[in-house]
Design a protein around this nucleic acid. Structure first.
Lengths: 228, 228
DNA sequence: CGTTCAGTTGAGTTGCTTCAACCCGTGTGG
DNA sequence: CCACACGGGTTGAAGCAACTCAACTGAACG
């Protein structure tokens, strides 16, 4: 991951773009496709039905990359939104390919990243299809907990998610009202406390892990690419 | 796709394996990872909760490939099951990498394939999170219709899915009972007819497409890699 | 001080699930 | 050849989890 930052900052620092919270990411160049490399802030990748309902497919954290290109190599079928103020580097795909070619470490780390993303998506899909609201919310909290604290000492059980309850709802496939209730219930049971604007503090990790229906270490290996 | 078959048959025909309906695919070699290339039959990639509930994440059709490798490059976090009698070729990952290296066409087609798979998964996730049972079932039917008939003349509106209602339920995130009801309703409305063991015949494509909440041609471009 | 917007809570509704019974085609053993 | 069990699909009845609608709160902001 460090490698990643260094390489990019050095070679492509000039392509850096800062975007306000709520901004929609679009490739700027006319037709050329881009891969987005996130330096700061969070992105949400989402897709929506014609009736306006949207589902957040994945969240992207600093140090990760994303390419919204569709099959036809032209249209993008997803929407990317900045959840807070972000800094991204947009690299057109041919340049990116060259970078990968030249830098085995980057190639390796990107592969791990892709595998992890796939695993996360599978986990969420499983819960979307077969789990209760409580499990879905608990799982999202655990996943984000693991991803946020991946490099930090693991005694910290508090983190911040820059998103509202509506967005958490769009991520976990629930209504915002029900997300609220569920969060409140977890609060009352003393499992977590929620602070200003999605500051999450997990008090009872085992309980939350249990609700989420996961094994913490197994999930970490599956989902967080650092370890490998 | 044809390229794909030819290349593989020629170079790796000896690794072919035939498996009975219901068999679980496992890498056979001790520790080495494999990519599975499906020649005949259908595969289901699934994941399950500890309580036994399982979600089918994707279906794999002849001509497609799948690599179940997890982040740690060791454990697989998904299960692969043969939905009917299948023939697969298992290629260990280093050989596969060499194949990709040497064969630009294969590389290209695999990239399209991967994009399409990603797009399909996004579509399903969207519906899993935000849609009614009717929409989910209709979408699955449309998706499989497009994938099955991709190369065939598009006047054929009938196809076969080698899976039971329980499996369709695991795929669409519903109970088997409700899948049954939904299918029955579509029958009564004259939109489809279901025959022996999941023979699907679509009579009113526009209606089904409408229920699924998609545009047929847009979806085809997004999901079926042949066109590009 | 009024407006706005996210979060919270209650009340009522509904879509899907669960449970259970039943049907029917297939296979199997007496 | 019949009897029987078995598994998948079908249908009804009842329950419940999550949704919608709507009202209220409180913080943020002009």
């Amino acid at each position: 991951m460090l490698t990643f930052h260094l390489v990019l900052e050095q070679t492509l620092g000039q392509n850096k773009r800062a975007l306000q919270k709520g901004a929609i990411l679009k490739a700027e160049g006319d037709k050329s496709q881009h891969r987005f490399c996130l330096i700061e802030g969070w992105l949400a990748v989402s897709k929506s039905l014609q009736d306006g309902e949207q589902q957040i497919l994945d969240l992207i954290l600093p140090g990760e990359t994303y390419d919204p290109t569709g099959v036809d190599g032209n249209t993008s079928f997803v929407q990317i939104e900045a959840l807070n103020n972000v800094v991204v580097i947009a690299i057109d795909t041919t340049t990116w390919a060259r970078l990968l070619q030249d830098n085995p470490d980057l190639r390796h780390s990107e592969m791990l990243q892709a595998n992890a993303a796939q695993a996360r998506q599978s986990q969420r899909m499983l819960r979307l299809g077969k789990s209760s609201a409580e499990t879905r919310v608990a799982y999202v909290l655990i996943e984000m907990y693991l991803r946020v604290t991946k490099s930090k000492p693991s005694e910290i059980f508090a983190f911040h998610m820059p998103m509202g309850q509506q967005q958490l709802a769009d991520f976990s496939g629930l209504s915002s009202v029900h997300v609220c209730r569920t969060l409140r219930r977890l609060n009352r049971q003393g499992i977590i406390t929620t602070g200003d604007h999605m500051d999450i503090c997990v008090h009872d990790v085992p309980a939350l892990v249990d609700l989420a229906g996961v094994d913490l270490e197994t999930l970490r290996n599956e989902i967080v690419p650092t370890a490998a």
